[in-house]
Amino acid sequence: MNATGVYDSARRPPAFIEEFQALLRYRDLIAQLVLRNVKARYKRSILGIAWTMVNPLLTMLVLTLVFSAIFRFPTRQYALYVLSGLLAWNFFAQTTVAAMGDLIWSGGLVGRIFLPKSAFAVSAVGTGVVNLLLALVPYAIIALVVGGPITPALMLLPVAMLCLAGFALGVGLALSTAAIYFQDVMPTYEIILMAWLYLTPIIYPIDLVPQSVQAVLRWNPMTYLVGLFRTVVYDGRMPSVTALAGALGISSAVLLAGWWIFSRRAREFAYHV
């Protein structure tokens, strides 16, 4: 619908723009969907919202025990190193899976009422941001206790999160477009995610792996996005201009590509759910 309130199926604006306009008009829906996701997930559990914080902590504990005790990585404050990487990774993994799942399993909502289809992916990112912020609380506490660096570089945390969010949204949009047509996409992606996790320097430091493997890791966009996040959160250093520009570039390119793929097909979704 345009500004004058007339819907004309023959004069709809280009999908790339129309989807964005609809999303802006439905911005309050995004907030409600995020609220629903956060509330509904914990409504009947005793620990409630604390699960968001407990979950990465337990994973960190296991990984720290395994890798610092058995493999003896010489990394400073390995627990914080793993946890910072995991927080960024979990955000990406959960967001992209949720973007797909929410669109497909929204009870066929897309085929039943009019709404901007991208609302599901965008609210999945919003939910991920809320969970990440919550999970940063125990991280900060541990950092304070073990003397991890808390420096002005943290001011760039929003930028690092923005890069991750843009990338996750782009990937999530592209994946959910495919998932509408093929049921195989979801399970396949879950397997890819597992391999992808090990191909990203999350639980090991990049300079500990052989040169040949490092060359592979350099083709992985998540290496740079997790890297930027970790530079400000774990190292407490200001990132280099190259690192910053690289992450922003990857993120916006993937976001635009994802949006283009998604919006080109979005009008057909109602026919396929």
Binding site: M1, G5, V6, Y7, D8, S9, A10, R12, R36, A40, S106, G107, G108, L109, G111, R112, I113, F114, R267, E268, A270, Y271
Partner: peptide, 28 residues
């Protein structure tokens, strides 16, 4: 309602729509 885009032809609605179809779709 704008849920299904026409395969052919044209739909023009000159005003805001209140769709009372699929009542309660989206309730949690």
């Amino acid at each position: 309602a704008g849920v299904l885009h026409p395969t052919r032809g044209r739909v023009v609605v000159r005003g805001e729509r209140a769709p009372l179809l699929e009542l309660g779709a989206g309730f949690h």
